[in-house]
Design a binder for these strands. Structure first.
Lengths: 171, 171
DNA sequence: CGCATTTAGTAACTATACTTACTATATTGA
DNA sequence: TCAATATAGTAAGTATAGTTACTAAATGCG
């Protein structure tokens, strides 16, 4: 297991803090890092083999069978090039199947295979449960507060069922 | 520029929400995504060429000239393999220099070159300023609250000046 | 001292996560 | 209709962000 802070750095000798460490971007990156590590550990402990992105894609495809890759990408906020590779790997593991769309000959419709449905069913409770371990330093109340603020911070893009605004950073 | 949500997905037709979208891990990933995109856009607008990680590394090396790679990695919470590649690229751009350590012949001491110091000086105000744009949906007060919660969520690992605890996920 | 363990760094590998560029197809509007 | 534009997907390239495995060197301990 990857040791985040070798013990020697808590010994007498210690490095100086940086400007970066107080910045929002750095804190968010650290949270993301922690989050993906918790996910990997818990999924592995459950005997499953899925990355966070692969899980998100399976979930989105399950909820929208027959959607095309661009739709799945938009739903979980990924670049279409990224999602292409993710679905390549899911297909290689026989978790999803792609069929050419008849409506649009450019598009490929994506669906879960039985193995994909099965794996998603197994993974869902594990992933749901692990969400509480992502923010271990917070109380239940603080965690809820944090998630509210996170949702609000993401702005209208996250609430596309309420408004039609797009991501605030795409000018 | 990358369009996060193609407009057709706000048209009459719309995909179903997923379980993932309500989860902490997903929200954190979205924040990280937004954060890196804001960083890239602002740095590019300033005529500079630096990734968030490269900036963090420059900042850490500036604050600790002569530290070895493992020290820099620990300071900004990166894997030593990752930081090795980052410093490779910084060295290729002549922003840092590596010299073999005399104390420890395994280690390589890292320092900023003049070009590195100069670039960091240019980048610092840009990066400081952009932090406020990372959480655009939040008021000043909410932003401070969010950052407090984030710091607390990261737990004792982030407060290594206060305690000697390590990352809670390294069992 | 000598040996087991730890640590610094690299190498090779996998998986994101984007970018630009490209092809093919669909849609729009004059 | 047909040309301009937009979109779906892939390809190639870059940069993270880790993993395991390895070498070399340092450290701890009996």
């Amino acid at each position: 297991m990857y040791i985040l802070f070798p013990s020697r750095y808590f010994a007498p000798m210690s490095l100086k803090h940086t400007h970066v460490q107080h910045m929002a971007g750095h804190l968010i990156r650290r949270l993301h890092q922690s989050s993906t590590q918790v996910f990997a550990a818990r999924i592995k402990a459950a005997g499953l083999d899925l990355t966070p992105v692969q899980f998100a894609a399976l979930d989105a495809i399950h909820a929208n069978p027959g959607a095309d890759q661009a739709g799945i990408a938009a739903l979980i906020a990924y670049d279409k090039a990224t999602i292409g590779g993710v679905i390549d790997r899911l297909e290689a593991k026989d978790l999803v199947a792609r069929t050419p769309s008849k409506r649009d000959r450019r598009a490929r419709e994506v669906r879960l295979t039985e193995a994909g449905e099965s794996l998603l069913t197994q993974a869902m409770p594990v992933v749901s449960k692990l969400q509480d371990d992502i923010l271990p330093g917070l109380s239940l109340e603080e965690r809820a507060q944090f998630l509210d603020l996170a949702r609000k911070a993401l702005g209208p893009a996250d609430n596309h069922h309420k408004s039609s605004a797009r991501d605030p950073f795409c000018h």
